[in-house]
């Protein structure tokens, strides 16, 4: 496929770059504790948390496992676990 003139490209192509494998620790959401407040969603630097039906849902394809969500969750509903790969 011919490259675009001037290296101009469409936005959103980054989804091909799955960054989930960068992780060492993986966040797990305790759906009983989570009330879907969205704090984790707001802070997530990798845009890999969504609030679906009042619960945080993590997209593990992209989550780099930084742990900010777990640290900032006011209800301690997210725990960081060592990921078995």
């Amino acid at each position: 496929m011919r490259l675009n003139a001037g290296a101009v490209c469409a936005g959103g192509g980054s989804y091909v770059n799955k960054t989930g494998h960068w992780r060492t620790f993986i966040p797990r959401v305790d759906t009983d504790k989570c009330n879907g407040c969205g704090i984790c969603y707001t802070y997530c630097p990798d845009s890999s948390i969504e609030i679906v039906e009042k619960t945080a849902q993590i997209d593990y394809d992209y989550c780099k496992g930084c742990g900010v969500c777990a640290h900032e969750c006011p209800r301690e509903a997210i725990a960081m676990e060592e990921e078995r790969k």
């Binding site: 490259l3 675009n4 003139a5 001037g6 290296a7 101009v8 490209c9 469409a10 936005g11 959103g12």
Partner: peptide, 26 residues
Amino acid sequence: YHLDPKKPYTFGSISIDKDLMEFRYL
């Protein structure tokens, strides 16, 4: 191409060894 929210393009992207020479060719 131009900067337009209706068709969001990225200008000034990075090109590494996989395509920099190809951009020079073009």
